[in-house]
Amino acid sequence: MKLVICEHVLRVTIVAPQERVDVVNAAELRQQLMQLFESGAANFVIDLSEVPFLDSSGMAVLVSILKRTRQAGGDVKLVWPRIEAARRILNLTKFDRVFDIADTAEAALKLF
């Protein structure tokens, strides 16, 4: 039997901040994500489950890396923050329309 068999391995980088993401450290997160992007990572899971506080500056970083990765044919999936109020912020700003958001990093990986 003639067969063409291809194995496609998708590289996904999981980034899980462990502290609040706000105007004080958003630039640092942006820089670290851009370093990963420039070193070849184009698909990200950004796991917000352990982020206790997320502000608009942190959200801007998420949009920034989303745009860069999609331009490169990649994508960004999110993991919902554990804190209910932070989840609501993502609803209010319609981020759940722009991003695929999962309950866990494992579930987010399956969204690719």
Binding site: S56, I89, T93, F95
Partner: peptide, 15 residues
């Protein structure tokens, strides 16, 4: 904010 076009600013006052 234009929620159909994800943007990198403008959410603060809205929130």
């Amino acid at each position: 904010p234009d929620f159909d076009q994800p943007q990198e600013g403008g959410y603060g006052l809205f929130l």
